[in-house]
């Protein structure tokens, strides 16, 4: 049974298993350093659909189908889909759940949704409410630009601090038992606001939440960064990653050292691809975790990864109304399962 330790960490003694996972993207993501880790690559951002929004839905349905296949289970065995995206009213998820015809709990955590959905899937399987759950998220560059920023063909310039919304999706099948990487603990983050007003600098808006979540997790579990193979944030980009390290050191006296990695800096090649401060979007951390990270955990090349999904909380109107951009970060402890009896 799940057990709370310290102030915010929820320990999962039975450690639910990620039986299988899948990541999908487009040729843009395939050109990145993790291109070979994608389970399916769509030729272009249209994904054969009429609209960008439909395209995002297709990405998500495909990721879920492939994850179910990779888990060696069946569609009928899935009892709950925990999913979210960045579109208004989470419509990419609603339409993919309509096509998949699975019970849906729609989630919104901005770019932190992959960690949020994994944490909830783990809790629900741990307590026996669900035998098999699928956690999934997606994002689409064109759909996000259209909704949050400017039309695609508009001749504007993106500042160097801007991040590139990944056109990608990831899904993970979480079961109460079986073989595979395990989810040993989870933490639902507190919303942190350090007064950032620049919606083109999401990394800066999210770094305080990531710092707070990581510091709390380490304190509650009485661990150090060196106890992990990787502390993986998603997606702070280059600006947010630097601020995270500074914040942890100044506010909490924690030095991340070499264990910190960021999904936004892993999915794309910052030098060759025009992504400015790095990747972002629910699909970015979803693709990195469901593709690369879970595979390495399964193989045993990684053993303990603290995945901290970070989200910038804003809507199309909130910055116009003079509101700041708060951030939230949820954490899940992913292990290769060897610590388990």
């Amino acid at each position: 049974m799940a057990k709370r330790i310290g102030s915010d960490v929820i320990c999962l003694p039975n450690a639910p298993v990620v039986r299988g996972a899948a990541a999908v993207g487009t040729s843009m993501e395939a050109k990145g350093p993790l291109g070979a880790e994608l389970d399916h690559v769509f030729r272009d951002a249209k994904v054969g659909a009429e609209t960008w929004e439909q395209a995002e839905s297709r990405l998500q349905s495909e990721a879920v189908r492939l994850a179910i296949r990779n888990a060696g289970t069946t569609h009928d065995a899935v009892q709950l889909l925990l999913g979210g995206d960045l579109l208004n009213q989470c419509m990419a998820t609603s339409f993919s759940a309509r096509d998949l015809h699975l019970p849906l709990a729609g989630l919104y955590g901005a770019c932190s949704t992959m960690a949020l959905s994994l944490a909830l899937a783990a809790l629900l399987t741990e307590c026996g409410a669900v035998q098999t759950a699928v956690a999934c998220t997606s994002s689409h560059f064109c759909a996000a630009e259209k909704q949050f920023r400017m039309p695609l063909e508009y001749g504007g310039q993106r500042p160097p601090t801007a991040q590139w919304t990944a056109t990608a999706s990831g899904a993970a099948v979480v079961c109460a038992d079986g073989r595979g990487p395990r989810i040993e603990a989870a933490l639902f983050g507190r919303v942190e606001d350090y007064g950032v007003r620049d919606s083109a600098n999401m990394g800066a808006a999210m770094a305080p939440a990531a710092a707070s979540t990581i510091a709390t997790f380490l304190r509650d579990t009485n661990t150090q960064p060196r106890d992990y193979d990787m502390i993986l944030t998603g997606d702070l980009g280059s600006v947010g990653s630097r601020l995270l390290e500074e914040l942890l050191e100044k506010e909490h006296g924690v030095r991340l050292g070499g264990v910190h990695a960021d999904c936004g800096l892993m999915l794309y090649d910052g030098k060759a691809q025009d992504v400015h401060a790095g990747g972002s979007g629910c699909g970015c951390s979803a693709a990195v975790v469901c593709g690369y990270i879970l595979r390495r955990l399964r193989e045993g090349t990684l053993r303990r990864v603290l995945f901290v999904g970070t989200g910038a909380l804003l809507s199309g109107v909130s910055p116009l109304q003079g509101e700041t951009v708060p951030g939230v970060a949820h954490a899940v402890l992913l292990t290769n399962g060897e610590g388990q009896a």
Partner: peptide, 20 residues
């Protein structure tokens, strides 16, 4: 020690590469 919003603003400016 919590960093104040104004201090964080300075840290952000230092971390954010400006346009050329």
């Amino acid at each position: 020690m919590k960093i104040s919003n104004s201090e964080y603003k300075k840290m952000t400016a230092r971390a954010s590469k400006p346009s050329d």
